[in-house]
Amino acid sequence: MADERPTPGGIDRRAFVGACVAVAAPLVLSAAQQAAPAAPDTAHAAPDSAQGATGTPRYDPRTHYYGMGVDVSKCIGCGQCAAACKAENNVPLDPHHFRTWVERYVIHENAEATVDSPNGGIDGFPAPVAEGGVVRSFFVPKLCNHCANPPCVQVCPVGATFSTEDGVVLVDESYCIGCRYCIQACPYGARFLHPVSHTAQKCTFCYHRVVQGMVPACVEVCPTGARVFGEVHRPSSPLTRFRRFNAIQVLKPHLNTEPKVFYANLDGQVR
């Protein structure tokens, strides 16, 4: 019974910890990052600094090559990923601009598929209209595939979108002329023109998080672990394990874009 008594002075543990944090606030984040497995802490370098984030000796992009795994059979269509992406990356909140979104497929008995993605899945999905005659149904999260052979990079007239050394396709917001050729060239509908900056935007794999050893926001909040982020080539990476234990498909393989978003348990109806 003595264990349950409040500590002398009336401070419970959480309040105590909170007070400690207030004192040592700046230490917390960096300590958390050191706890992360591959945590090359680059702090917050100034944007124009010659010692930029990728230029610091602690993060060497040449030693990384990122990809993502998506297990379709684990996705519950909660839309947390799409919502978190918007919060993390300042994506317009309207239902027509997404860096990642969730589609629901309903395959009917006549083999036809009904697909919907109301507000990218962020607000959930309405009950499917025709329950009868449904063969199977599932959710598919979509995002930029960070192709190894990206058609968007190929067509950009000025070099404002590019593949980084660590395998991420990025857009240079201050250099993009807004011609939208890349949006036309993307087979996956993963790009959009930002209505305010008038430049092309897309998933960055949360590059600002990744260089700090964190996972992308969508992966962080996915409640069922349907998304796996990691190194494509490193044997110890969770992505390698994911690719070893699942039959893997990519979207629209006939276009030879060589996506680095790998889908497990993907249905043939998904386009």
Binding site: Q154, V155, C156, P157, V158, G159, A160, Y175, C176, I177, G178, C179, R180, Y181, L193, S197, H198, T199
Partner: peptide, 20 residues
Amino acid sequence: LGHPERAYEILMTPNTRSAM
């Protein structure tokens, strides 16, 4: 163009792989 004032970039740093 979203940024007509940057159009000169097409001539300054043309991506030789880009049709445009």
